[in-house]
Design a protein around this nucleic acid. Structure first.
Ligand SMILES: [Zn+2]
Ligand SMILES: [Zn+2]
Ligand SMILES: [Zn+2]
Ligand SMILES: [Zn+2]
Lengths: 167, 167
DNA sequence: CATAACATGTTATAACATAACACTACCAGT
DNA sequence: ACTGGTAGTGTTATGTTATAACATGTTATG
């Protein structure tokens, strides 16, 4: 059986971006980036990114594979994982560890350590900015350790879901 | 084939606790907690916790299962996952999302949002305290969202590993 | 003792991820 | 044009992590 991953309601923190613009911007930005870096934005890579940015919600690798299959691409697992790794290396996709899922980056311009807010009911996910949100995550400067990557995920319930339900 | 999960070197951030004491304390604390809460600290639960606290390093569920098998317990997957879920509910075990592994809590007294420092070379893991370490993680108070659980993991390389190796 | 709640055991399968190798296209140096 | 290297994609098989569903035993509690 399949794990549910629908999502139906919204809450303010999840709605603070204009996704129409977000989508167009994202495509343009990734194109420019690849051009500038002399990287190939192949049909497969473009398609995977489009699948992720289209609804701008986290998708499991196998959901991406299904979508690829529907669009005439190969849908064996390594296809998705390789492209996802590539897009993550360049900061256009992040992995949500708590969901084993992947999501298109919401702030692909500046390099950043992403933080995510995840509603465990509707499974909506928002990528937040250190400064913009209440969260202040002082740059981790641990003694005797060089931090290369941080994972920050906040799971809970959004207002819409909590007001709608009987817990 | 098996993923490596050995760990051989140490760095200061990983050595700031006396594990002999840590082990004894942990056992005593979990016993007291279960007694006070009228929960059953069954042989299976005790064994799982002992396996985790013994070396105080992250173990995969299937590693725990092997250890259980060696000690005469059943070693089918649900056994481990159920006990781990239970111990996590009560704050005595945490899951390291970046490693798909479980580790005994280092600060089982006070309720806390654990944060972890993970060396990707030796796979040593330290659970750090907000205040004690350089990290300051302001309590996330996001608008229109009630945070229930935070995941904070910092991956990098410890001094020992970085000084030892040719990157 | 009845019975409900909790705990463990067992089988099967789902969900997630990678290894290894094959094939093609493209480009650089000869 | 030949050669060898690199990058991208395709394919098969398998490894790894986690859960569903159901059976059995064990422990309060009225
Ligand atoms: Zn968007
Ligand atoms: Zn929600
Ligand atoms: Zn310890
Ligand atoms: Zn190390």
């Amino acid at each position: 059986m399949k794990k549910k991953r629908e999502g139906k309601t919204t809450s303010k923190i999840f709605d603070d971006h204009d996704h129409g613009m977000c989508f167009d911007d994202a495509i343009e930005q990734i194109e420019n980036y690849f051009l500038k870096k002399n990287l190939q934005f192949t049909p497969l890579r473009r398609k995977v990114f489009e699948i992720l940015i289209r609804d701008h919600k986290p998708l499991g690798a196998y959901e991406i594979l299904e979508a690829l299959g529907r669009d005439g691409f190969s849908s064996s697992p390594p296809i998705a994982y390789r492209v996802l790794d590539f897009l993550m290396e360049h900061g256009f996709v992040h992995k949500i560890q708590g969901l084993n899922a992947f999501i298109a980056c919401s702030h692909p311009n500046h390099s950043h350590s992403p933080a995510f807010v995840i509603c465990r009911k509707c499974e909506k996910v928002a990528e937040i900015d250190e400064k913009k949100s209440g969260i202040s995550f002082a740059s981790p400067n641990i003694k005797n350790f060089e931090v290369e990557k941080t994972t920050v995920e906040m799971t809970g319930v959004c207002t819409t879901c909590s007001s709608a339900a009987t817990i």
